[in-house]
Simulated assay, not measured.
Amino acid sequence: MQNLSPIIEVDELMQISENQNLRIFDVRTGSNAKENYIKKHLEYSVFVDLNSDLAEIDDPKNGGRHPLPTFEDFIKTLGKLGIDKNSHVVIYDDKNGANAAARFWWMLRAVGHKNVQVLNGGLQVAQNQNYPLSSVEEYYPETKYISDYQDWQLPQVWINDVKKASQDSDSMIVDVRESQRFDGIMEPIDLVAGHIPNAQNFPFIDNLDEKGLFKSPEVLRNLYSELFDNYEKSKIIFHCGSGVTACHSLLALDYAGFDIPNLYVGSWSEWSRNEI
Rank of each mutant, 00 (worst) to 15 (best):
G63K: 04
R65S: 02
R65N: 04
R65Y: 13
H66A: 05
P67E: 09
P67A: 13
L68V: 03
L68A: 09
F71N: 01
E72P: 07
D73R: 02
I75F: 00
I75H: 01
K76V: 11
K76T: 14
T77S: 04
T77M: 05
L78F: 02
L78C: 01
G79M: 01
K80M: 12
G82F: 01
I83S: 03
I83M: 02
D84I: 03
D84E: 08
N86P: 00
S87E: 08
V90A: 06
N96Q: 11
N96M: 11
N99K: 14
A102D: 12
R103Y: 02
F104Q: 09
W106H: 11
R109W: 06
A110C: 11
H113D: 06
H113L: 06
K114F: 08
K114Q: 13
K114T: 11
N120Q: 08
Q124V: 14
Q127T: 14
Q127G: 11
Q129F: 00
Q129L: 07
N130Y: 10
S134V: 11
V136M: 13
Y139Q: 15
Y139L: 15
Y139A: 15
Y140F: 14
S147N: 03
S147M: 08
S147P: 00
S147G: 08
D148A: 05
D151Y: 15
D151S: 04
D151V: 05
W152L: 01
Q153W: 00
Q156C: 05
D161L: 01
K163T: 05
K164A: 13
M172Y: 14
V176S: 10
V176F: 15
